[in-house]
Design a protein around this nucleic acid. Structure first.
Lengths: 144, 144
DNA sequence: GTAATTGCAAACGGTTTGCGATCTC
DNA sequence: GAGATCGCAAACCGTTTGCAATTAC
């Protein structure tokens, strides 16, 4: 296990954190635009690198949109997303209820559900078994 | 209102359909590799264009992976996806139950859920209102 | 015959990487 | 002063587009 050095408090990194708290499900570009207000010369690469590192270190979550753009989410608790088909705006649903979601959304948020996509992540039976076999005979890892 | 012409039965398109039935959640590249077995010279562009058209015409569904690759799904009914964190394999969960999913998956499929992401799509209150304001020019059915 | 479809090459857009310059600690 | 971080340019990779040649109807 390699241990990463403590991140340095650069102006850029601090501003990125600040912007993440101000913005709601921003893309890297959204963050860039926010940071640029105070550091006009920041490079997009710096934004990408810092965001990715924050995700790697667990300070931040991210998810993919249908159009292939990564969005970032400073809310670390499990929760759902509500995405409007028309304007594309994404809002949060706290992860309390799991049942009757469509009805509740319709009644309480006036959001008319037309589709949904739930992706559960975890470890499949095959991989669990493979991991068990590897505890005595370690070969290469499949992990991405 | 433009009406699309009926797709022509090209060899390529027919093979793409055939491959979609053989493959499970394929990427465009997967489909390409499958079609190439019978038409070695097919161009990837042809695959992309046909897949996109099938999606546009509702014959096919598609969704984004976390890595930004589009996957295609010939199962048109609503259903969930189960994705293994290690091997990345995606399997289907029929959309019958909505409650106690993690427990059931754990028990019945030996799948250890570590995370999930549910994105509900629909029309938000703002957009519904916006559409209502435009009611003098009725274009689509958002109401009821 | 003619409009749709293909193949090819080039473009695109979001993201990543290599590297020398700069900044934190 | 050493190593982390930055800025820049170029690469990357999946996907899309423009266009001339080919094909289905």
């Amino acid at each position: 296990m390699k241990r990463k050095a403590v991140p340095r408090k650069t102006q850029q990194r601090q501003l990125i954190s600040k912007c993440l708290h101000e913005l709601c499900h921003p893309s890297a570009e959204d963050v860039w635009n926010c940071v640029r207000k105070e550091i006009p010369g920041v490079n997009k690469t710096t934004i990408y690198r810092n965001l990715r590192r924050m995700v790697d270190e667990g300070e931040l979550k991210c998810f993919m949109t249908d159009s292939g753009v990564m969005l970032f989410d400073s809310t670390l608790d499990r929760h759902y997303h509500l995405r409007c088909d028309k304007c594309g705006k994404i809002s949060d649903i706290p992860s309390a209820l799991f049942d009757r979601i469509a009805e509740i959304m319709q009644k309480e948020k006036q959001f008319k559900i037309t589709d949904y996509n739930l992706t559960l992540s975890g470890i499949c039976a095959d991989c669990q078994e493979r991991a068990n076999r590897k505890t005595s005979n370690p070969d290469q890892d499949l992990g991405s």
